[in-house]
């Protein structure tokens, strides 16, 4: 087990290294005016050259690359240029991340608590009314562009329930709409997968055998089917949770939540190259970490998965 985790960690680090490198080169392909923002138009070419040199951007590429690696190793993500000029990116993210994490955790919690029971009920009432209603919901959420119902919720639900249209720090009730909007998609996805996997289990022989030995339907559902159905979901769960807590770009900008998603949006629109670079790195490491966690969770849940080839002892 330990050997396997170590191996997977090293693999993840390698992937991260490759991503960091690719991101670095992509950023060098961006036009240079991005490093100056609006004042670029008013600057003399000599002035531009001087500032670029001062930022180290005129050094040979390998030198820049290794300097960048060195900074990453020290945990230094560089300094913001246009979004919050001269401010260390680590500090910016430190301020923003808690918003995204709080919103994300609550909405993932809602998605799981609603989605999994919903999927189970749908499976148990397969092809009957609850299943049909659930499917309508899932298809609606997946087929209609999220922007449509996000806007709808923001415009109408705020009036209907007398809730604030935008997020503000002092009013906790302003968290409701963004959180509910965020959890709609997750709920649909979790319900869909739970239904699918529970239906898969329902026709298995072991379920019939459990019934034949006199086990109650409730115990079969919760003790046998649901547990087994959640195993294939275990693999994707951590990744999707981590991605949700890292912030929804669209919802954060819609409700002006000062989180990471909103930060990425303004970093891109203001061409804040180092900030974009840092955020892309963070998002991809969360993704990689999520996959790693998913694989480990799978191993814990399913005894049939062996990590390494053990010596045959039978």
């Amino acid at each position: 087990m330990f050997k396997y985790i170590l191996k997977r960690l090293l693999q993840s680090l390698l992937t991260l290294f490759i991503i960091a490198t690719v991101v670095f080169f992509l950023m060098r392909l961006m036009p240079e005016e991005g490093y100056f923002g609006e004042k670029y138009d008013k600057m003399e070419p000599a002035q531009i050259e001087a500032e670029l040199r001062a930022m180290g951007l005129r050094d040979p590429l390998p030198v820049q690359l290794f300097r960048y690696y060195g900074q990453l190793l020290k945990g230094d993500l560089g300094k913001s240029i246009t979004v919050q000029p001269k401010k260390a990116i680590v500090n910016i993210i430190e301020k923003r991340a808690p918003y995204s994490i709080r919103f994300g955790l609550i909405s993932v919690g809602i998605s799981l608590c609603v989605g999994i029971p919903m999927g189970t009920v749908m499976a148990l009432f397969k092809k009957r009314l609850p299943d049909k209603l659930g499917n309508m919901y899932i298809i609606f959420i997946h087929a209609v562009p999220a922007a449509v119902y996000y806007l709808f919720i923001q415009l109408y639900a705020s009036g209907l329930f007398n809730l604030p249209i935008l997020y503000n720090n002092r009013d906790p009730s302003s968290m409701w709409l963004p959180i509910i909007s965020m959890s709609l998609g997750g709920t649909a996805t979790y319900a869909m997968w739970t239904r699918r996997y529970v239906v898969d289990q329902m026709n298995k022989d072991y379920v019939k055998f459990a019934r034949a030995k006199g086990v109650s339907e409730r115990r079969i559902t919760f003790g046998h089917m649901l547990r087994n159905a959640l195993v294939p979901m275990a693999q994707n769960l951590p990744a999707s949770i981590l991605l949700t807590i890292s912030g929804s770009i669209y919802i954060e900008s819609l409700y002006s939540v000062p989180g990471m998603g909103n930060l990425l949006l303004s970093a891109i629109s203001k061409q804040d190259n180092p900030l974009v670079q840092a955020l892309v790195l963070i998002y991809s490491s969360l993704g990689i970490f999520g996959l790693l966690l998913g694989d480990l969770l799978m191993v814990i849940c399913d005894p049939r998965i062996k990590l390494e080839r053990e010596k045959e002892n039978r």
């Binding site: 298995k204 022989d205 072991y206 019939k208 055998f209 459990a210 019934r211 034949a212 030995k213 006199g214 086990v215 109650s216 046998h224 547990r227 087994n228 195993v231 849940c301 399913d302 005894p303 049939r304």
Partner: peptide, 24 residues
């Protein structure tokens, strides 16, 4: 039926590979 199943009449299925829950 639960009063009958198992307690009075039990059953052994054809395929032992699938009659047991793989995760218990």
């Amino acid at each position: 039926w639960r009063e009958i199943r198992g307690k009075e009449i039990a059953m052994v299925f054809q395929d032992p590979m699938t009659s047991l829950n793989p995760l218990k």
